[in-house]
Design a binder for these strands. Structure first.
Lengths: 260, 260
DNA sequence: CGCCCGTTTGAAATAATTCAACACCGGTGG
DNA sequence: CCACCGGTGTTGAATTATTTCAAACGGGCG
């Protein structure tokens, strides 16, 4: 967890490098209690660190899956391209998340995964991961929880894109970003915000041009302030109200500790 | 699986009644190989049959989950209501699907589940299901696959609602319905179609009025014909083209048989 | 028979897109 | 050091898809 050193690749995203799999332990433990042996099993997974440049592909649609990546630092997003050639971004991922459960299990990717910033990964071979999950029910359970929460986020995105106006859509996205960043790095009122307006548009089903106007609106109303690559949240409550944001769908502290 | 008798409740949806859990065995087995003992464990789950009227709620947002329902017959959908009071339907479910994995594991429902037709369920107590999943890795694995496929469908819906025009959206929805019905009852060119235009609108992010016009368009072009509560697919390929429908996201025969 | 829910159709209003031009900023090469 | 370059952001005006409102129709059910 503790940063070894910080440097930056092309672009302005600063990278924190950690040298182990404890991020994965943390991520899974947030969803289900693990025994010391479970933790050891995760920590002794074979894994190779890899660094990836902005906008390159971690996975391409149609590719068979041979590995599972853990996101150590940076931001990653999933996209699908329609027959008409337009893009929809269907999710983004922050430090600490496992990126490829779907592909590992379904075998073939139905979407692309790309780096939004320079990204650091731990690459875990698919078979090792499957074996571990098979042997350790608690880990299997944590993986299931992680997948269920991601599905819940997908549902909320359907609502966002399907039934909210432009202003609310981008406000909602910003709220989700703020919320999820806050979990990683609590109590800050501002965060690096490396999304381009085109990417915001592709995530909200809007045009880059329209996103620009909506961001202007939100700034004008005093909810946010943009300064270079930094986004400052001046009135998070106002933003939540206009974005109709209720963080319940993120299932922040969903840990099923009883029976399983 | 074999119908015992057929009758109809209020409305025109005809109900097939089966007296066992073999549908759940089938559903899970479609995603991962099960041993005879796994099958027995499922078949001996305590379960109560229940019949539910059209448009009533199986689960309400915010409710704690105590049971898991298996859909024996009828159609069910999930909805979320925005702060502005508009509805978005985020998925629908057909005969044979398990409805409440998310709620069973996450503990608290983040959306409503409602009957689109009269519906027959098998109600399984949450604890029994959790216990079984804990004891039987193959079943846990099948559940995970089922959840992953549902998540893949959510992603495609985000694309549909976010990046396709009105005509394509409803065409896509119809294609998915046809495809999934065809899996249950192969080779037919027409199916009962109990969706109201308002429901189609809420599933595609459109207005009922606009859905009406788009359906008219699709019919005019000779892709479909509507006769009472029946929908006939006259040109499924044309429909797929205009709906930009590629069934890959349904992961029709995704069975991971190797390692796990 | 009449009622109610769902469908159909038209016309006016609106949100968002498209197209186009320009400004900005960091990075690259002369 | 400056000039240029490409990608991103900003702004305005015209166009279009979709919504809204409203009214009428139809068919199944009591």
């Amino acid at each position: 967890m503790r940063p070894l050193k910080t440097y930056s690749l092309a672009g302005s995203w600063s990278i924190r490098v950690t040298n182990d799999l404890s991020l994965l332990v943390r991520h899974l433990e947030a969803h289900a209690p693990l025994s010391p042996e479970d933790r050891d099993a995760i920590m002794s997974l074979p894994a190779a660190r890899q660094t990836i440049a902005t906008s390159s592909y971690l996975v391409r649609e149609g590719e068979p899956a041979k590995t599972c990546a853990l996101l150590v630092d940076g931001i990653v997003y999933r996209q699908k391209i329609t027959g008409a050639g337009v893009r929809q971004i269907v999710s983004f991922h922050l430090r600490g998340e496992a990126l490829d459960f779907q592909n590992v299990f379904l075998g073939c990717a139905d979407h692309d995964v790309r780096a939004l910033t320079p990204v650091v990964l731990m690459i875990i071979p698919r078979e090792q991961l499957l074996l571990m999950i098979r042997k350790r029910p608690a880990i299997a359970h944590a993986v299931l929880m992680s997948v269920l929460i991601e599905a819940s986020i997908f549902r909320e995105w359907i609502v966002n894109v399907g039934r909210r106006g432009g202003e609310a859509r981008v406000a909602h996205l910003l709220c989700e970003y703020a919320w999820r960043m806050d979990v990683l790095d609590p109590g800050k009122a501002e965060y690096e915000f490396p999304f381009t307006q085109e990417q915001i548009g592709d995530a909200t089903g809007l045009t880059a041009v329209h996103v620009n106007r909506m961001l202007g609106l939100l700034e004008e109303k005093g909810f946010i302030r943009r300064e270079r690559r930094l986004l400052r949240f001046l009135d998070i409550h106002g933003l939540r109200r206009t974005g109709d944001f209720d963080p319940a769908y993120l299932h922040g502290n969903a840990v099923l500790d009883g029976i399983l």
